[in-house]
Computed example of a mutant assay.
Amino acid sequence: MKRYRQLAPVMISDFTVERWHHPVHNHNHYELIYIKSGKGWHTIDGGRIAYKAGDVFLLGPEEAHAFDVQARTRFIYLKFTDQFIHRQGAAATPGVQSLEYLIKRRDAHLAGFTLPVADRRTVDAIFGVVSSLQQDVAGAEPIVWTQVLALAMILQRNLPELVAATKPARDMQAMFCYIHKYIYAPGKLRAGVMATHFHTTADYIGPYFKRHAGVTLREYIREYRGGLIRKRIASGQYSLKSIAVEFGLTDESHVRKLAL
């Protein structure tokens, strides 16, 4: 399978085609794709879904995809790397947390986003700003970043909440999404609180998670939180104090311990 590699932290492209010219491929970056006009089919990891004007897709490096254009289509692409995410502003914002959550919600990657009318207007305006910046993307990185955060918050609020189901795979997907959403709120990740949310007991949820995930609930939460913290520290944009506040930790020594 072809793999596209992007060296620049962020790139923007706005183009119109009558036929798609790329094979099924994946890449080393994230892509926010806006369908400005047109219609057709989008193949993502073997699944095929229809697209139309106003639709938005978020793809990560792990997804393989291609388009089948049925009617002349204008695409606006915003492509960015992990480097772009973690070298931006020093202060954590809800937008950063929304983006991190969206990146982990692979079910949303596979289905795309269909937005209500009001949000469609806002998203269309945001991608208009994005397109206008493509001639000097490097010089406009802070402006591009604010557009990414705005899009992340709009897309997250349009995601359905995943709830436990009868199948273990769906149960685990719901639990993972819950953890990713509340990773900044330790109180929400206590076994008793999670058990109440998933209509079970504190004694049951831990063994259930270990049986199906292969690691304990505490280990998974610790590793996921530690990974996010390590990225913040590596960026040089966050103080230990600000990280502790963002993740609801007691002090900076706790941050250092989790980053090991």
Rank of each mutant, 00 (worst) to 15 (best):
S131G: 10
G226P: 00
R74P: 04
Q97L: 08
A259E: 05
A195I: 04
K181L: 13
I76F: 02
H86A: 09
R3E: 15
A165S: 11
V117T: 09
H65S: 07
L110H: 13
G128H: 05
H65N: 07
Y77S: 04
F84E: 00
T216S: 15
A108T: 13
L32A: 08
L228Y: 03
G187H: 09
L240W: 03
G112R: 01
P186F: 10
A234H: 06
L260S: 11
I35P: 00
A195H: 02
T216E: 01
G89V: 13
P142C: 08
T122P: 00
P9C: 09
W20V: 04
Y204G: 01
I143G: 00
A92Q: 13
M1V: 12
L32Q: 01
E62Y: 09
R230F: 11
Y101M: 11
L149W: 12
T81L: 02
T250N: 10
L110C: 06
I103G: 06
G40H: 06
Q147N: 12
S132V: 10
I183L: 11
E62A: 12
A259D: 07
G112M: 07
G60I: 09
V123C: 03
V69Q: 05
Y77A: 03
F84V: 04
G227C: 05
F75Q: 01
R121S: 08
Q83G: 07
S13H: 11
T81G: 05
T200Y: 01
